Amino acid sequence: MPTAHENTPAPDRAQEAAASQPWPSVGVVVPTRDRPELLRRALAAVEAQTYPGALEVVVVHDGAPLDTSLVRHGPRPVRVVSNERTPGLAGARNTGIMSLGTDLVAFCDDDDHWMPDKLTTQVRRALAPDRPEMVTCSITVDYDGRRNVRRAGRAEVTHAELTRSIMTMLHSSCMLFDRTALVERIGLVEEDLPGSQNEDWDLKLRASRRRPIAHVDEPLTVVDWGRPSHYAREWDTKISSWEWMLAHHPEIARDRRGAARVHGQLAFAEAARGHRRDALRWAGRALRSNPLQWRAALALAVVCGLSPDRVLDVLHRFGRGV
């Protein structure tokens, strides 16, 4: 368990609180599209959870036929449904959320998988006296077999911290919510975001605006950054999503470090798709806000001829992204 924050119950108190009451039911939403082998690995990891409470899974097929062979009955049922909302990851997640009636809801992408104690550890934190609406954990990034642990180094994450950084280790496959809080107060996953990109950052910002996000700083989720990812290099969509984030979360632009980060990302994306003038414009804005913004420097290197794919491959080997 993480080191206790002054406003966070100590681990032994959280464990005592969990032991004194029934374990809440948990529903797991797994959106998928044409990755059957990875999906089965994710489902096997959910099935292997040590969690003693009721656990069910809903697999949401997005733009693909239902695979009814995944259906399971018994104490840990698996259902399969089609995305009934906006096509894409956000609509698929929301379809799953709304099909569940569990106390808690967790996300797991089809190319990621959990460590056996993931849910038990997070639910203990969720049952602590402060009853957080959202609990995350840290990750291990797997890039073509090379693994790197990414930790947050804290027991809670504030809104101010998330305006200046997406905090990648608070990955969507780590998210656990009080379902009522998610649906009625935080709000569902944003379906208007271009390509469902940055939907996790938007959700974290909205959740942390209400209350700090409780965090278990253990790498309880393995995130696959392998080359089969649907989203790794979709530059046009990434640019639209970053511009959407700046427009809908003005606090990012007001934070010099946050603005510099997004401007540096925009510069790199523009350079990667060969738009030299736009790349230079965004890089200049990033460096004026923060002269140490390394994404802007990488964008300038790409403008000068460095391969963006080579840059991404090197970053991913160390569990990092642009």
Rank of each mutant, 00 (worst) to 15 (best):
H5G: 15
D67I: 00
L66I: 10
A155G: 14
R254W: 04
I97C: 11
V311E: 01
V314A: 15
S25W: 04
E6F: 12
A155K: 04
V149N: 13
W242K: 13
N7S: 12
R179Q: 02
L315Y: 01
R210N: 02
D178C: 05
R35V: 12
L315E: 01
L66R: 10
P212Y: 09
P75R: 10
L300V: 09
D12F: 10
A126D: 06
P291F: 03
S240I: 00
L66W: 00
L89Q: 06
V71S: 01
G91T: 06
R256V: 15
V28P: 06
V311Y: 00
L66V: 11
N7D: 15
D224V: 11
H159P: 05
R310E: 13
A272T: 03
S208Q: 05
R288K: 13
L203H: 11
Q265L: 12
P129G: 04
A17I: 00
P75K: 12
H275S: 14
S196T: 05
A42W: 08
A14R: 04
D313F: 11
R295E: 06
E270D: 12
G145T: 12
L280P: 12
D12V: 13
D111H: 00
G74M: 13
R256C: 07
T68Q: 12
T168Y: 13
V58P: 08
T86E: 15
M167W: 11
G305W: 12
C108F: 02
R233N: 15
D111C: 07
G101S: 15
A128S: 14
T68I: 02
T86Q: 07
Q15K: 05
H275Q: 05
V60Q: 02
E6P: 08
T3R: 04
P11L: 06
H215K: 00
P77E: 00
R72A: 04
G284L: 06
L205D: 05
V46D: 05
S241D: 04
T8Q: 08
E56R: 10
R85T: 01
A90F: 01
A267I: 09
H215S: 08
V26S: 04
R85C: 00
M98I: 03
W225A: 12
L170V: 08
R151E: 09
A279W: 11
R210M: 07
D224C: 11
E234A: 13
G195D: 04
T180N: 06
K118H: 15
T136Q: 12
D236S: 14
F268N: 10
V311C: 08
R79Y: 01
S289T: 08
T120W: 01
L220V: 03
A286G: 09
G153D: 14
R320V: 09
D117N: 09
L188F: 01
V105N: 06
R288S: 10
W201N: 02
W235N: 14
W282N: 00
G305E: 07
V314K: 13
G145K: 01
R147E: 15
G91C: 11
R256Q: 11
D112M: 06
N290R: 13
A286P: 06
R261G: 13
T8N: 08
A90K: 07
T180I: 08
D236G: 09
N198C: 14
D202C: 10
L312N: 06
R277A: 14
A299C: 01
D117L: 07
R261L: 15
A297M: 10
R85S: 04
